[in-house]
């Protein structure tokens, strides 16, 4: 116990550095996947059959395989099979590859939520808009979008909470996120070795951060409570 208290300041600082990388991956994924998901959703709903079929095939593959394997393929395939490491070396290369894998994976999940949300809006509202001389774009932005957002907040909340925890998967390509930082004290780092408690302690970070995310999304859900 005494030893843990002695180690705490050093561990705390290292975990914070790792957690910063976790947060970066989380926000980059969110910022990329939320709009990309909409593009993919429109692709999967396209009236041009080849496009919608291809999009749905891609979604099926991405959702049907582990994100961990996608990460490994995206990170190692260019370097090993094409003998050309697109990502560049070091931590920045690992971060770039992780971001691409996470954004694409989550965009596919989000797109299915969006599609369900868009298709759940009664068609009569679009027709009412058309009859009132509104363009399809106006109907989407002024009538459909906010209702879709209202309906997708609960399922999106689930995905986003999963994303917080999934960032840990980037450990597999040695991205120096918080799990990596916690593990480093087992091998030996900052003069501490054989300590496993830092790894266990990382759970507190996830828990606290998910608490913040849950409260924020709950507020958003409340703010959209004024209509049905």
């Amino acid at each position: 116990m005494n030893l843990m208290l002695q180690q705490f300041p050093v561990v705390f600082q290292a975990l914070n550095v790792g957690f910063l990388q976790t947060l970066k991956l989380f926000f980059v994924t969110g910022l990329g996947a939320i709009p990309l998901g909409l593009v993919i959703a429109f692709g999967s709903m396209s009236r041009f059959k080849p496009l919608s079929a291809l999009t749905r095939l891609v979604i099926w593959v991405v959702r049907g395989t582990p994100l961990m394997i996608q990460l490994l393929i995206i990170y190692y395939f260019p370097g090993i099979e094409l003998h050309n490491n697109w990502w560049g070396g070091g931590e920045s290369g690992r971060f770039l590859a992780s971001s691409i894998a996470f954004i694409f994976n989550y965009a596919c999940y989000f797109s299915e939520i969006y599609r369900g949300g868009i298709q759940s809006i009664p068609k009569g509202q679009q027709e009412a808009g058309l009859v009132l001389g509104m363009t399809r774009g106006q109907i989407f932005y002024r009538v459909t979008l906010l209702q879709v957002i209202k309906r997708i907040v609960p399922p999106m909340s689930n995905e986003i909470i999963t994303l917080v925890k999934d960032t840990a998967l980037a450990r597999i390509i040695a991205l120096q996120e918080i799990i990596w930082a916690g593990q480093s004290f087992m091998r030996g780092s900052h003069g501490i070795s054989g300590a496993i408690w830092p790894l266990f302690f990382t759970a507190v970070y996830y828990l606290l951060f998910n608490g913040v995310v849950t409260v924020a999304l709950g507020r958003l859900e409340k703010r959209l409570d004024y209509f049905r």
Binding site: G124, T135, F227
Partner: peptide, 23 residues
């Protein structure tokens, strides 16, 4: 599409299911 939009303005339509915009 733009011509069709203009044409629609000559008519109004009230639906059986109202179809108001809920927000």
């Amino acid at each position: 599409e733009a011509d069709i939009r203009r044409s629609r303005l000559h008519f109004g339509l009230v639906f059986q299911s109202f179809n108001l915009f809920p927000q």
